[in-house]
Write a protein that binds this DNA or RNA. Structure first.
Lengths: 111, 111
DNA sequence: ACATTATACATAGTGGAACACAGTATGTCA
DNA sequence: TGACATACTGTGTTCCACTATGTATAATGT
């Protein structure tokens, strides 16, 4: 099945949330989380994210030096926990400020 | 010159604004505008956009059946004016609602 | 004991999109 | 005439979300 173009709304909606996704993930990783639980938490809070989107995103953010990760064995299968490091914490603050400026700008544009 | 990775902040900031860009453009095209003037207006209102981003975006939105365009010759060089059509107007309303829902969600996530 | 489902992480492939850069052409002004 | 602003177009690169699929372990049911 090919993606139809009957409603470009869904595609554009995806684009709309695309950048906010990173910010949502970063904001959740102020405390250590593993991918699967993070996905559930985000879904519950109105920001659903596919596995095939979330896991590569976490790897990218770690590769960019924003996250630290470690494997942990508790009950259940091994889990990879991610957490903001100091650079990631600073970036979260910056991005949050940028986000809020964007919201102000968009409010002006949309009215 | 290859894009350096020294600051992922600028890249992520771009991603953040990426989806909002479409919404900003659509909201401005409730009245007919040509690309160059649109770019200046958006820049003045805090949403700068490159030419290489804006012009392809306008073509895409027209190809998706959201905009109508026509060439006009006034004083100065010919200009291509774009304007929302009825489908685009409906989409603007939908996307605006999605945007506002996103803002609510992000407020919850960020605090 | 075996099958099924849920949990947990990963990656290849595809396509869309922003940007840098370059190019084309017209208008204005000294 | 030369310099600069205006106005639009095209090419190549890079990034990334998503789909689909694969691997593996744990929990549950029968």
């Amino acid at each position: 099945m090919v993606r139809t173009n009957e409603s470009s709304a869904s595609t554009l909606d995806t684009e709309l949330r695309r950048g906010a996704l990173v910010l949502a993930v970063l904001s959740h990783l102020r405390t250590a989380q593993y991918g699967y639980s993070l996905r559930q938490a985000l879904t519950e809070q109105g920001m659903p994210i596919e596995e095939g989107t979330l896991y590569p995103l976490l790897r990218r953010l770690e590769a960019q030096g924003l996250l630290a990760s470690d494997w942990r064995i508790e009950d259940g299968p091994p889990r990879r926990y991610y957490k903001l490091n100091s650079k990631g914490t600073r970036l979260l603050a910056d991005l949050t400020a940028n986000w809020q400026a964007l919201v102000v700008t968009m409010n002006r544009l949309l009215k």
